[in-house]
Design a protein around this nucleic acid. Structure first.
Lengths: 334, 334
DNA sequence: ATGAAAGCGCTAACAT
DNA sequence: ATGTTAGCGCTTTCAT
């Protein structure tokens, strides 16, 4: 079954392709095509299941109804969830999403961005890794909304949270609730600035409470090798500092693997461990032990990013000033 | 900065667009373009950061280097993980993925499929919900690989597991290990056939061991309202059947919410509960209690699906017989 | 109320 | 060794 085209319809119906095009695009009335003709064409289209070729349409109009969603890892529950909410909003408007994993790698990210430009994506929503790709996007001036991470000095629209403040106030509250907490922190490389901000927030919380946070309780595990790295470093830490009775995981990945390490090798200690993690996950309600989560409003982040992009798409003034939406977090104590 | 086009290059360099096109597509030598010219063009391209417009290219060639990845929910960890592996293989070959959630809804699914056709997707990888969309894809003869779910009588290439056998043998082993297990089962609507096969497998395991499985220990919670539904039904069940000391969750979603319900309202019973779930998740290693998982080879499923699609893309004979790859599962006892 | 034709940027068969 | 040209399927201005 070969593809029907607009000219076939025109030929079969003895009309011009212009007429067909008008009707397809709902401009029949506007161009005063007679009701009769409109009906005839619509009937033909329905019967032959004609679908306009969007590639051709894009070439003419310059719009592809395609958006790039670029994140470090599309299977990361955090990015997957936000992606779903983005999809939810954008698919209603006829957009499809190219979802791509940048792998925290600047080169991969740039290649993907270039591919998006070649494919005439109408816009991009991304959790950026580097400034290079952002500059490239800007140079092509294609509508862009960033989320989750802000690249310093990059002037891009942004939706996210205040990592420093959220971390600081959560840890302050935690230390107030758990007076005799002896806390260690688990973060990871590569150090994206969201993570350093969370670390800073934590350290400042200690400082302001007049407490000391020893350097060597600040772990930094390896992103490429999370599980082994967690097993090793947490093992070593608990050996050297048996007094540690609390962990702060600075993101969902370290929390996952940290919990794994604790469950695997340190069950006896687990009973009275108090855990807190940046990013909340449903699993913290069923984990051993239950884990307090600093919850980012994923749905809101996704929806706001999508809506912000839609606005950009509809308003033609590239001039507009940079918009930043900072959303509140919520602490789920457990 | 406006888009450079092939004709601008031609004009600027005093060459014809053909020559430029040949060089861009690596056919310079084949068409005996002089080294000098080739260098000149390549240099120009590098300097001006020219990127060919893939929309125009697709319109001429009929190939878009675009693949549709359609699953019920892209944020479901199972589909997200497989998606990542699919992406991994296909991105190496220059393909980008449209990832779409069909929401278990036939109409949504069909709309997305039609959109893929309009957009000239070169192929589709999907966990199908209905036969209707499969027939449509076939009618357009666009290369298709299905995974996870087989639609009865649909003759599509398939990658997945044998749900009936996997379920049956896992439950048989489970009952052998836990002689005095008093098991309830939690499944969900809508009843896709993977789930009914898992249920059948479980019931047959009981039968062959000469055991009885009471009708009312077979729960069916509501997909649209998983959490509430689990809380209600599991609560009611444990009240009526306090002897139940084991649960079989027939997929990751019911396991998640089942564990949630148990942790929330039935902690005392949890100590000696033995849980097993179809689909394994990392969280089962840190959940309370640890949960045995029947693990599907996600990476293998993703990679095989992608590779199978690539073969289809490269071989032009539509005739070829239907390929089915059935992969083994692995039980992770906990 | 409808049609002709240019053009979107590219590829490739066919010149030269 | 390089150029001319006809499409690919569609939108839209300008005619009629």
């Amino acid at each position: 079954m070969n593809k029907t085209t607009i000219q076939e319809i025109a030929a079969d119906l003895g009309l011009s392709i212009t007429t067909i095009s008008f009707i397809i695009n709902g401009k029949g009335d506007q161009y005063k095509i007679s009701k009769a003709t409109q009906e005839r064409v619509k009937k033909y289209i329905a019967q032959n299941n004609y679908q306009p070729n969007s590639v051709a349409r894009s070439l003419t109009t310059g719009k592809s109804y395609t958006i790039g969603y670029l994140v470090p890892d599309i299977s990361d529950p955090f990015y997957a969830a936000i992606g779903k909410h983005v999809e939810n909003i954008l698919s209603q408007q006829g957009y499809q999403l190219f979802m791509c994993s940048t792998k925290e790698d600047p080169d991969t990210e740039l290649k993907i961005v270039q591919s998006m430009v070649q494919r005439q994506a109408d816009g991009i929503i991304m959790a950026p890794t580097t400034k290079k790709s952002l500059s490239y996007i800007k140079s092509q001036d294609i509508p862009l909304v960033t989320f989750d991470r802000q690249i310093p000095r990059s002037r891009a629209h942004f939706v996210g949270i205040d990592n420093y403040e959220a971390s600081k106030s959560a840890i302050t509250a935690f230390l107030t609730r758990n007076k005799n907490a002896k806390m260690a922190m688990v973060s990871m490389t590569p150090e994206v600035n969201t993570l350093s901000q969370r670390i800073e927030g934590c350290l400042d919380a200690f400082k302001e409470l007049g407490l000391h946070f020893p350097e060597d309780l600040n772990l930094n595990v390896d992103y490429q090798n999370l599980q082994e790295s967690c097993l090793d470093q947490i093992g070593a830490l608990l050996q050297k500092h048996p007094e540690v009775n609390s962990f702060y995981f600075t993101n969902n990945l370290t929390a996952y693997k940290g919990l794994y390490a604790l469950n695997k090798n340190h069950r006896p200690k687990l009973e009275k461990m108090k855990l807190i993690s940046f990013d909340d996950m449903p699993l913290f309600e069923i984990s051993h032990p239950f884990t307090t989560g600093i919850e980012q409003p994923q749905e809101k982040i996704g929806e706001t990013s999508a809506q912000m992009l839609l606005e950009l798409l509809h308003s033609k003034n590239t001039s507009s000033k940079v918009k930043k939406v900072i959303l509140p977090v919520q602490i789920n104590w457990r």
